[in-house]
Design a binder for these strands. Structure first.
Lengths: 242, 242
DNA sequence: GGGGAGAGATGCCGC
DNA sequence: GCGGCATTTCTCCCC
């Protein structure tokens, strides 16, 4: 069976298709793009996801989301792969001049990624240990979705003031200050009170951002994100295993 | 040559490696994750990029950036692929229980993506056609980088006021208003003037955001992002071709 | 489906 | 390197 037929059948059977080929690519949709001819890695998934990678970098150079529909044609040694997304009004044309390799596979996987160490873990920590932010601080609620937005941790300080704590895993920037400002303003408005404070908790903050933060009447508290697991010991262990 | 040797040589030669395998994955770095056993698509690029995909979705379930270093071991039918990023202090362990397919290839590609229809094109359009934003508007500068960020388009209106135009390809949100506010404030401060206006140009804006925008003394102008190319005719043409 | 916010965001550019 | 910001951002969650 030639490459064209293999690809055609793989698409028809909705298999996972791994293709390396020399091709040029045209995309039209939310933007427009053109990529001149070169060797690419093309991955088509059973759910209709299309990913095209160049030989460097971690981001696909062109892609189409799940539920993409495919059609192929061939003429004089050229294979045209047309991808069309019915709802998103997006289109891609891949003109393949040479297939280097092709594989169609039926794969099985029902596992889900378990991830830890994100911002939610950070707000959980603050909720459980508010004293690490400020002496006498009491946590009231966590990730509260309200009319006025989504507050990481809402607290009350020693003097009875409401305190909005916004946490960031990385360097707090201008945007984080705007966010905090908006929450504080909205809470003041919603509750008709004026004594609402704001605290930014993050491992670092740039000087310019800290200046704006303090001009807005807020303060910064240094808080490290959840610790990275130590690798050194594990590496030792693995090396011994093999 | 067995799969293990093929993989080992592909890594040594820094080839593009396409691998489908049943595996479990552990990651430690900026966060921590674990993915139980299942069939996955594994792509290793010559630059040291590692991408692991599940059979659905467009985002890799696990990944390592370029310049990752690899080591492999095997024992009793299990292959352990260890990935380590020297500068980022990130680590990944892929424990492979079965390789379904493997390919190592030398690919060539020197092309770069040409993309149109992004926000820069939108600000270019405004710079060249300021009258579409407001009658009598004159463009002064485009993408001006300042200490506090960069202003999409800086203009002067009929009355001689400076006007900051911020454009968004999609629905303008709270963050965009904060951005505009910051630019206007900083320009007022830097130039020691008070008559600086702000205009948000975007295809749509939510009611809540528009309210905040107008409360801040700014206005919204509807501006469509650069038009999508019409596909209908092209599709006809392609169908006729084959 | 829209709105709001995080992401192991990534990538680009400028300083 | 950091900072600021767009992205064909993507994804999740909630209303």
């Amino acid at each position: 069976m030639n490459h064209y037929e293999t690809l055609k059948q793989g698409l028809a059977k909705k298999e996972t298709i791994l293709l390396t080929a020399k091709c040029s690519i045209e995309y039209n949709g939310r933007a427009q793009s053109y990529l001149p001819s070169g060797d690419r890695i093309i991955l088509i998934k059973p759910d209709g996801t299309l990913l095209i990678h160049q030989i460097t970098g971690s981001v696909p150079v062109n892609y189409m989301k799940e539920r993409t529909e495919f059609q192929i044609f061939h003429k004089e040694g050229i294979i045209a792969l047309q991808a069309k997304h019915p709802t998103q009004k997006e289109y891609m044309d891949v003109e393949i001049s040479e297939i280097h390799s092709i594989q169609c596979l039926k794969l099985e996987d029902s596992s889900k990624l378990q991830l830890a160490g994100n911002e939610k873990d950070m707000s959980d920590f603050i909720f459980s240990n508010p004293e690490t932010i400020e002496k006498g601080l009491k946590a009231l609620s966590r990730e509260e979705h309200t009319d006025f937005g989504f507050v990481d941790v809402l607290c009350k300080d020693m003097k009875g003031n409401l305190v909005v704590v916004e946490c960031k895993r990385y360097t707090a920037d201008y945007k984080a200050v705007s966010q905090l400002q908006r929450y504080v303003d909205k809470i003041k408005e919603a509750k008709g009170i004026s004594n609402v404070r704001g605290i930014m908790a993050s491992p670092t903050i740039s000087d310019a951002t800290k200046k704006i933060l303090e001009e807005s009447g807020f303060k910064h508290v240094v808080l490290e994100p959840p610790k990275r697991l130590e690798r050194a010991k594990k590496e030792q262990k693995k090396l011994l295993e093999f």
